[in-house]
Write a protein that binds this DNA or RNA. Structure first.
Lengths: 142, 142
DNA sequence: ATATGTGCAAATCCTTTGCATAGAA
DNA sequence: TTCTATGCAAAGGATTTGCACATAT
């Protein structure tokens, strides 16, 4: 992945937003910086709570707006693994997930731990837009 | 898959429910018969609408209750492919899905069209509870 | 000025729940 | 009876939306 030339390397997050044509406002920077801080999966609610407890002044609407915008531009990835809520993943590279069915907890599959020896051709006139693989886990009975 | 011995082959749907310990009431039979009629993916809302337009007397709550019950007992399978709504799949055998990202439409992957040459070991103390694979599709640009 | 963000609260949408009634054993 | 299922309407929770205000260029 190459950085576009117009990308000046000042603040990493800010420039990453600018690169995608996202105006880096205070709230957007806070949301993005929090989520992108490390590989993780967070819900909108978790992000809102974390920002507020760290003293940030952000509204719920802005958190949602921002996360949707970031996901749309490919800065983060939105995951749908259960019907309850959306998870936002700071890792946009191709990777898959475990989910503990009891707790809902998500974790990344180890890199390279999945390999397809066969995948279907897309139906006529269609092309792949992505592959979502979720391995559901339960506690092993003793 | 063997039919339990106490399963008399009268009405197929009714006995399938009884086999799972589900009391086959009128509404449950209607919901199950509609969904199980053929391999398909339907939402609760679609099922409710279809039943009502065919003259059935069912409430939304009962449709949800019934679908949850059927899913719990393994008669149907609940799919979570987008955050908007749950889909219920009449096919409970292991299989995967295409989803058209534009329309949300689901379809089954051709049987045997996916093969894993490598899958991760479950984390310590955990075991596989299932694998959900969704291949997102978009219209191919011309 | 003029475009764009932001916040708040209300609105939506899907799904669940509480409770009184209807039905089955 | 006694237990279970149903219907209705209200509740719930996540997400979106409308609109006035604040902000940045």
């Amino acid at each position: 992945v190459l950085d576009p030339p117009e990308c000046r390397p000042e603040d990493a997050v800010a420039s990453r937003l600018r690169c995608c044509g996202i105006h880096p406002t205070a709230q957007r920077l806070q949301v993005a910086a929090l989520l992108l801080a490390r590989p993780q999966h967070l819900t909108a609610e978790q992000i809102l709570a974390a920002l507020r407890s760290s003293g940030a002044r952000v509204s719920k609407a802005t958190v949602y707006n921002t996360l949707n915008l970031l996901a749309e531009r490919g800065v983060v990835r939105q995951l749908v693994v259960d019907g309850d809520r959306a998870w936002f993943d700071s890792n946009v590279d191709a990777h898959f997930h475990f989910q503990d069915v009891a707790t809902g907890q998500l974790s990344d599959l180890p890199m390279g731990s999945v390999d397809f020896s066969r995948l279907p051709d897309p139906p006529a006139g269609m092309e792949y837009a992505g592959i979502d693989l979720v391995i559901r886990l339960r506690r092993r009975p003793t």
